[in-house]
Design a binder for these strands. Sequence first.
DNA 1: GGCCGAATGATACCAGGTCTCATTCGGTGC
DNA 2: GCACCGAATGAGACCTGGTATCATTCGGCC
Lengths: 152, 152
Amino acid sequence: MRPGINATQTERIIQALERAGYQATPNRRLVAELVASADGHFTAAHLLDRGRRERVTIGRATVFRALDLLTTLRVVERLDLPSGSHAYVLCDPDEHHHHLICSSCGRSEDVADGELPALIERIGRRSGYRIEAHRLELFGTCPRCAGAEADR
Amino acid sequence: MRPGINATQTERIIQALERAGYQATPNRRLVAELVASADGHFTAAHLLDRGRRERVTIGRATVFRALDLLTTLRVVERLDLPSGSHAYVLCDPDEHHHHLICSSCGRSEDVADGELPALIERIGRRSGYRIEAHRLELFGTCPRCAGAEADR
DNA sequence: GGCCGAATGATACCAGGTCTCATTCGGTGC
DNA sequence: GCACCGAATGAGACCTGGTATCATTCGGCC
Ligand SMILES: [Mn+2]
Ligand SMILES: [Mn+2]
Ligand SMILES: [Zn+2]
Ligand SMILES: [Zn+2]
């Protein structure tokens, strides 16, 4: 086990795979470790890089395939950053929520859905649309980064 | 002027360009026409295609540059579809709002911001983040598509 | 008409994925 | 332990959406 790896999170991810009937192969375990130890959001390229630095090789397609799997299991979620690029973030699959992302350090915070469903229900009624999915993404500066900013 | 083109919308887009001090060149007028006559959301490739079908040639980079401009002027907005791909949609720049997009036909409806700011303010207070931007995207089926569905 | 920055097209390039296909893995039945 | 067979994998081609570079052209102004 590599240093800095959150074993509990890793286990949680692997169990999600197994519970859904997927094999917990060495490659998927590796991706789980990399994901679990990511600080904030990350890209597939980022994981690949970190793997390579530790001299573990894994195919690019395999990483994307694993991330796809984890996405459908809602263990990770894909973010659309304001820059237009995509990133993934580790996520709690148990309840629907949204993300508050620090534009400076990339760390993110889960945000409960709160009053959003009621608001959306009203929008659906007014517009006549049958609303099937929604996404709320919040971007800002986390307290830590705001502090660092103030120090300078 | 081509048939099916919404001259008023086209004019509105061109005026936005001029008001911001950009030249309303023939190419930008063309993009404005294509954008104004799009039904629902569209991609750069889609505009390029439609141009080509009417035997008007315009460089790919030029279309992207025009869309960038219109995006900064908030005349169009970029959408992140659940599929992961990007699209643009014609937009009213005058007040902050969000989009309700039909997954079936691609048409979209503007949605007022409503109670969202209050909700976001609360989230910021609870989390300590300074929230600087937000995005709400709603996906569903529009009444027209729901009707067509029911007919079958 | 001449000047000069803005706009343009061609083209190369890039990131982030997806697809194909031949190979390998790994869980199951024996 | 071995054979079997579908699941997983890596390599590499390919694709979409977008950006960078650079030489050319345009267009508003004197
Ligand atoms: Mn989350
Ligand atoms: Mn709009
Ligand atoms: Zn931060
Ligand atoms: Zn529709």
